[in-house]
Nucleic acid binder design. Structure first.
Lengths: 151, 151
DNA sequence: TCCTTTGTATGATTTTTATCATGTTTTAGG
DNA sequence: CCTAAAACATGATAAAAATCATACAAAGGA
């Protein structure tokens, strides 16, 4: 029973994806993969739903995966250069990020709506933060021993 | 067909409410009321759904209403001192506003999650903007003749 | 007082999002 | 090869949000 369903900056799915990506950044690399089965509880989501999200991220090259025995999900060196924005875009869709705060299709920088100057900057700040945060930097200050999961 | 359903700062309902409140600020006062019937197209939402939202706002004192013949919805002098945050809280619920970006229930200022320092500030900026904007100030610079609706 | 006009309250329906389940494909080891 | 272990793909179900519809209550005018 989640009390915080609305007023979301991002959807629940994207939140799961971000948590998962933090987990992968912390625990995996090309040699050390992990199974959905072994991480879903840490992300506080069901195995099959996390699988779906990870497949989506993998298909778009944000994370890596290997099929078959010994396979699993992991973050490669290249993956670590991707940003949180990449994660959000895969899950929420490309255009969602640029949408007007009021959902007005005709609103853009040239033809701003009444709220544009008001809420635009903070939305932009949010986007900038997502863009500036590489997956690598997510876990920079976190010593592997320090337990931050489950999230 | 709305392309911008996710990655929302606020829900569609709150967006309708904000648009409606801008409309009321622009067109009404204690003497001049307006019917849902006469404003729903300007807000780009159905009559009955807008009615529900306005009733919600009215019940919480954010806007005013009068029943019966000659009635309608309007913004009183006092209403105009309310803020966008009041509108959002009525529609989204009180606690939604303070929720963690990752939806972690144990996350707060004392015990911040990994994303807190990263996205917290821009969320806070967003909240501050909502709080700082009175309904009166929403239409400050807008001459009544200048058509900004439908939104 | 009665009738029309309005908002109010409540519940049903639809659409979207989230979740679950089941089968398919690929890979590595024996 | 064959088999088991893994991701992948797809569709079914459940939950939540958005939308619609219908009956009720209050207010004002004739």
């Amino acid at each position: 029973m989640d009390l915080f369903l609305t007023y979301q900056m991002i959807t629940k799915s994207a939140k799961y994806a971000i948590k998962a990506v933090i987990y992968l950044a912390l625990k995996t690399d090309d040699q050390n993969r992990i199974l959905v089965r072994d991480m879903h509880t840490e992300v506080s989501v069901s195995e099959s739903y996390l699988a779906k999200l990870l497949q989506d991220l993998s298909r778009h090259g944000v994370i890596s995966s290997a099929k078959g025995r010994g396979g699993g999900f992991y973050l490669s060196k290249e993956n670590r250069r991707r940003t949180l924005m990449d994660v959000v875009k895969v899950i929420e869709g490309e255009d969602a990020v640029n949408a007007c705060v009021l959902g007005i299709s005709s609103c853009d920088t040239d033809n701003p709506c009444v709220m544009h100057h008001l809420l635009g900057p903070s939305k932009m700040a949010f986007n900038k933060a997502l863009e500036a945060t590489t997956l690598a930097s997510l876990v920079d200050g976190i010593p592997e021993k320090h337990p931050i999961f489950p999230l």
